Simulated assay, not measured.
Amino acid sequence: MTTATALSGVIPPVCTPLTPDFEVDTASLTRLVDHLLDGGVDGLFVLGSTSEVAFLPDGHRRTVLETVVGHVGGAVPVLAGVIDMTSLRVLDHVRTAVEAGVSGIVVTAPFYTRTHPAEIARHFRAVHARSTVPVYAYDLPVSVHSKLGAELLLELAAEGVLAGVKDSSGDEGGFREVLLGRRDRDLTGFSVLTGSELTVDAALWMGADGVVPGLGNVDPHGYVRLFAAARNGDWAAARTEQERLFKLFGLVHVGGPHMGRSSSALGAFKAALHLRGIIDSPTTALPQIPLSPEEISRVAKFLTDAGL
């Protein structure tokens, strides 16, 4: 839901289903969107990390945007990642996303080259100047090698450059610093969303507006129940749901030492969606390594144990 203060609720980062020859499977993508909407989510985030954005060429990105925005038809906000290494490249993605009709764009700090905080601020200001939709920062230091500090985020929020942040840093102290700074500066329109799907109940208790959970592709209903319990002040129910989701999240570790974490986690999400009959193929983008039949059977066990 979008409130008078900030974007809030459950906003999953949508997986990008691919055909076995690595094209975007638009039929599976629309089924996945319907699955998420049926789960009661409050918005969708396409072309993020869980969407394999780093692996997708520009044509694939455009197909995802047009498919999801067209299919949703304004039923919920659609945020789009405009993630790339440097500002000029990001500005190209901004233009494409805005033309596709997204509700907001999500931007990381520049990466590949090391970037000074003053340059990061300039980057976000440049994106805001070119965008006709709200700009959300994506704090992802494990991938971009730059932590978005609370002071920088709050300064840009006060300027009207940033409408919010998705925090996937895992830095709970820094997360609380942003929440406290927002309150102290009366930045009620600045949305603070957690991307840490294992501690959502704690983040909401601290005052977060919502969650962007990769596991929400597999079980959107669970995250919607968790958010509703927290909103109603039923923290025991929120904790119970979080603990069930915590156990389900173990499926991201089914891949063995012969593959990277991305191959294991994104492969598990897609295997789960395939096993649930939502997407046609669990294919992940090159050069990720596919899960073996035995590893996929372990994903099935996690689904069974979670009541899915």
Results as ranks from 00 to 15, higher is better:
Thr2Leu: 09
Leu7Ala: 06
Val10Gln: 13
Val10Arg: 13
Val10Cys: 10
Pro12His: 04
Pro12Tyr: 04
Pro12Val: 00
Thr16Ile: 06
Leu18Ile: 05
Phe22Trp: 14
Phe22Met: 09
Asp34Val: 01
Asp38Pro: 05
Gly39Lys: 09
Gly39Glu: 08
Val41Leu: 01
Asp42Phe: 07
Gly48Trp: 00
Phe55Trp: 01
Gly59Arg: 15
Gly59Ser: 14
Thr63Cys: 07
Val68Gln: 13
Val69Lys: 13
Gly74Met: 10
Val76Phe: 09
Val76Glu: 07
Ala80Met: 10
Ile83Phe: 01
Ser87Gly: 12
Val90Lys: 02
Leu91Pro: 03
Ser103Gly: 15
Gly104Pro: 00
Ile105Asp: 06
Tyr112Pro: 00
Tyr112Met: 10
Arg114Ile: 03
Thr115Tyr: 11
Ala118Arg: 13
Ala121Glu: 14
His123Gly: 06
His123Glu: 06
Phe124Gly: 06
Ala129Val: 02
Ala129Trp: 02
Ser131Phe: 03
Thr132Phe: 01
Pro134Ala: 06
Tyr136Asn: 01
Ala150Arg: 07
Leu153Gly: 05
Leu156Phe: 03
Ala158Ser: 12
Gly160His: 03
Gly164His: 14
Gly170Tyr: 04
Gly173His: 12
Phe175Gly: 08
Leu180Phe: 13
Arg183Ala: 15
Asp186Ser: 15
Asp186Met: 10
Leu187Val: 00
Thr194Cys: 05
Thr194Asp: 06
Ser196Lys: 10
Ser196His: 13
Asp201Gly: 02
Ala203Ser: 14
Trp205Ala: 14
Met206His: 12
Met206Ser: 13
Ala208Tyr: 06
Asp209Thr: 07
Val211Gln: 09
Val212Lys: 04
Asn217Val: 01
Val218Arg: 12
Pro220Gln: 12
Val224Arg: 15
Leu226Gly: 05
Gly233Trp: 07
Asp234Cys: 09
Trp235Gly: 06
Ala238Leu: 03
Leu245Tyr: 00
Leu245Pro: 01
Gly250Tyr: 03
Gly250Glu: 01
Gly255Thr: 00
Gly255Arg: 05
Pro257Arg: 15
Ser264Tyr: 07
Leu266Tyr: 12
Phe269Asn: 10
Ala272Asn: 13
Ala272Asp: 11
His274Gly: 06
Ile278Cys: 08
Asp280Gly: 15
Asp280Phe: 04
Ser281Leu: 00
Ala285Ser: 14
Ala285Lys: 11
Ser292Phe: 09
Glu294Pro: 00
Arg298Asp: 00
Ala300Pro: 00
Ala300Lys: 11
Lys301Ser: 10
Leu303Val: 04
